[in-house]
Amino acid sequence: MNSGISGAAMTSAGAMAAGRKPRRQVSQPMAAFALLTPVVLLFGLSVIYPLFETIRISFWQIRGLGKPSYVGIDNYVRLFTDPTFLGTLWTTLIFTLGVTILSVSIGWFLAMLCAFAPKQTAVFRLMIFATFGISEAVAGYIWIGIFRPGESGLLNGMLIAVGLGDWSQAWLGSGTSALVALIVAASWSAVGLPLLLSFAAVQTIPRTVLEAAQMDGAKPLAVVWYIMMPLSTAGARVAIFINLLSALRAFDIIFVLTNGGPARATETVGFFMYRESMTQFNLGYGAAATIVLLVAVLIVAIPAIAQRTKGAK
């Protein structure tokens, strides 16, 4: 049942191997070393080296341009007694999960619907994907226009126009509605990625399967649920991973839309790290927050990765 491309690849591999059979094979660690060298070099330079720097300065107190002083684990101790930092944890959870669930479920669902009619929906896919190319800051400004207080906000204007004027409010002025508004705005531009990746994954399902399902009288939603969804998890998985981590470190959109407010109600850990490091320039403190976040993600991620690697082999 192999399709054309892999078949061709196999014949070429076979032909090549047939040509020089007695050739000695490179050992796996050697091959791994050869293929990984560029990755290790670039990754080491731009991630590992700065990471060690970060760990190092997380033990120092640095205030702005002032002289740094060694403080041991003080930054970490302070972090866990800082009500602002502790407050960001809950907000981060809601924001990150909210954006990921909303964007991936919409994107994935749309991708599966589009797979029924790839040609007719091409323009629509492009329209939705286009939002992915808009920078966070500009998206923030546009969403401010939508959520503005009074009738000059698009959302309020629309509510008034359809007779729901009582619902109109200053959306960014209360903690709960500001967080919801932020999740909506961030999800808006995040839908493009799950749409793109899930669509690619759904496309790999052979048309014959869909045709057979239709012949059996399956309704489109049943096809989505029983056939497309289980067969397109690869795309959604990557999208969940990338959107989750992007939401975790979101800064610009929060800065523009709510500035973490009102009264810190929309401040996430990512925003906190950025504010401490860049605005306050408490580099040591910001570094400690980064390391804590890194360890937290590590703890969450290790079981998932362990399970995945076990499943693969």
Binding site: A170, W171, S174, G261
Partner: peptide
């Protein structure tokens, strides 16, 4: 205006 409007603007 209301506190909510103040904090939103």
């Amino acid at each position: 205006a209301s506190a909510q409007t103040i904090l939103a603007s």
